[in-house]
Design a protein around this nucleic acid. Structure first.
Lengths: 132, 132
DNA sequence: CACTTATTTAGAACCATTATAAACTACAGT
DNA sequence: ACTGTAGTTTATAATGGTTCTAAATAAGTG
């Protein structure tokens, strides 16, 4: 029920597919990172229900636009998303190709001194690359 | 001549194509950002010589592996590279889809408190997203 | 219930990137 | 200079993530 309101309040119709995707994405103890293909697999495992690839793409993009998901800026052949939408940063393990969350307390305050007229800062993201 | 040595010292044969790409990439007053396609176009303009797409890819990857180029971690349909290999950060203008360099002095020191056993920090990159 | 509009879907299209395999080139050894 | 070998270039095909399309379906409204 809670997701129905969440979707309605965003101007998104609460369809069966979107509700199922909400369950997989947001009804979890911890936040997590995922690619579209990983999400599609999780949906099939958790709901025993196949949602078409196009719908998964549509929904993830809709959720991102509404601010329920964040894209993680990283160069990879696949796009990574994060269900943790709070301001936080990432380790990226180059050897294992794995993303690890950094708590906010793990990174000291970041001071951006430069300003650009007419533009405001939307986000500040730090990517720390690790290697063995 | 200088590029011949640079390449030889890296274990890369100084071929005609690689030397031409060196000219375009490194014989400039300022560093710059580019995609593979932009680079290919620059090569054709500057050298009046066509280098095959595969070679541009090969060379850029070889140079990146040797540390002469950096990939910029940003989500875009194309991969961005940077001829500025010093530690520095970026603005990304979401409206204009343009990358802007941040000088090191534009960003205060970044303190990563978390450590992961057996891994060392290779780089710390900050991406500041801007909007109107 | 009827109507409009949003959503889902399978499949096609797109396009950056990578793989392939044949021709070519740098270079070390003779 | 010749030869052989390993590295490089090249056109083209293949790959694969993402987006587009158009028809079928479902949600919301009166």
């Amino acid at each position: 029920m809670e997701y129905i309101d969440k979707l309605r309040n965003s101007g998104l119709r609460p369809t069966k597919q979107r509700l199922q995707i909400c369950e997989v994405l947001f009804n979890t103890e911890k936040t997590f990172h995922f690619t579209i293909n990983e999400l599609k697999k999780r949906i099939k495992e958790k709901t025993h229900n196949k949602i078409s690839l196009a719908t998964v793409y549509n929904t993830v993009h809709a959720f991102e636009k509404k601010g329920y998901l964040k894209q993680i800026p990283i160069n990879s052949n696949q796009t990574y998303f994060d269900t943790n939408i709070t301001d936080h940063h990432h380790f990226y393990d180059l050897n294992d190709q794995k993303l690890i969350d950094l708590e906010n307390s793990d990174v000291g305050p970041i001071n951006i001194k430069k300003k650009i007229d007419g533009k405001r800062i939307k986000s500040v993201e730090v990517l720390v690359k690790l290697e063995d």
